[in-house]
Design a binder for these strands. Structure first.
Ligand SMILES: [Zn+2]
Length: 286
DNA sequence: CCGTGGTCCTGTAGGC
DNA sequence: TGCCTACAGGACCACG
């Protein structure tokens, strides 16, 4: 589930003042954060969740460390703690929650950090695809990531150069984290719709103008997603409402918001892709 | 280099 | 009620 806007929303909530009190029905924006809290102990309920290092070493080294900051890189949550950094990738169903230690452990909690002030951070992940790393060198985990789409220094020309090198479908290229970090299945469909580009368009058929428009579309949908606290679908991830503003994603058969043509769904690179066959007609390529 | 199919997992929706 | 299949915010691998 979580793509850049959902991860950004979670990261922001973890950065909230840590001295806030817990309350019933708090939104993500209202909840207390974790910066400044000290780890008193850790628990691992699913071995594979901890990618590196082994549990023994992790548990030993993380205990006593203090949360210095919470940041985001692509879809990764980055938490510097002393000389090491704790990283999470939420994959399809991961979530990070802050709660009092006396609260009952939740179903699907995979990794828990107990803080010395009586609170805890829990990594909840029903599908078990999510991973955590405890790394001295952050680049060993984040090294292959492409640029941040919301970095103002990133230009359309740069993305044109990156996308133009490949003959793969632009839908697939948008999901390639080494070309651009943070975009997933929802936001790639939405961005292609805004840029009026057919998802099967080969990267090397894109024009510089289209690349510019696509980066602008990516930025717009990411901003919208962040504004709405991300998208909440099914039982995974709660708190956002961008799902109520989808233009094409999971709207198969429903009318295009621009021209009324039924939205089409087809599988591209093992992922379902939704688009308007009229607004996003393939313009051709030499 | 490219596309395809399989893997890792649990949960839900829909057809019968 | 079940039972069965398809599908889901992601990423990685082997193969031809
Ligand atoms: Zn349309």
């Amino acid at each position: 589930m979580p793509e850049l806007p959902e991860v950004e929303t979670i990261v922001c909530s973890l950065r909230n003042p840590a001295d806030r009190a817990f309350a019933e029905g708090q939104s993500l924006r209202e909840r207390p954060g974790i910066v400044g809290r000290q780890v008193a102990g850790a628990r691992l309920n699913w071995a594979k969740t901890l990618a590196l290092p082994d549990w023994q070493q992790f548990q030993q080294e993380v205990t006593g460390q203090t949360v210095q900051a919470v940041t985001r890189r692509g879809k990764f949550v980055v938490i510097p703690m002393g000389t090491n950094t704790l990283l999470f990738h939420l994959r399809m169903s991961g979530d990070l929650r802050v709660e009092p230690q006396d609260a009952a452990e939740q179903k699907h909690d995979r990794l828990l950090l107990d803080f010395s002030d009586g609170t805890r951070l829990s990594f909840n992940d029903p599908r078990k695809f999510g991973r955590a790393w405890w790394a001295t060198d952050v680049q060993s985990v984040l090294g292959d990531l492409g640029p941040e789409p919301l970095d103002e220094g990133l230009t359309g020309q740069e993305m044109y150069a990156r996308w133009h090198r490949s003959s793969r479908a632009i839908k697939t290229l948008l999901l390639d984290q080494s070309l651009l970090a943070g975009v997933g299945n929802i936001y790639s469909d939405e961005a292609l719709f805004l840029a009026r580009i057919h998802p099967l368009t080969p990267g090397n058929c894109l024009t510089p103008v289209q690349a510019e428009a696509l980066l602008a579309g990516v930025r717009q949908v990411l901003h919208e997603g962040i504004e709405r606290n991300g998208a909440s679908i099914d039982w995974v991830y709660r708190g956002g409402d961008f799902q109520n503003y989808f233009r094409v994603y999971q709207r198969t058969g429903e009318p295009c918001t621009v021209c009324g043509t039924p939205i089409e769904r087809r599988v591209i690179g093992q992922r379902s892709s939704h688009f308007c066959p009229h607004c996003q007609s393939f313009t051709g390529c030499s």
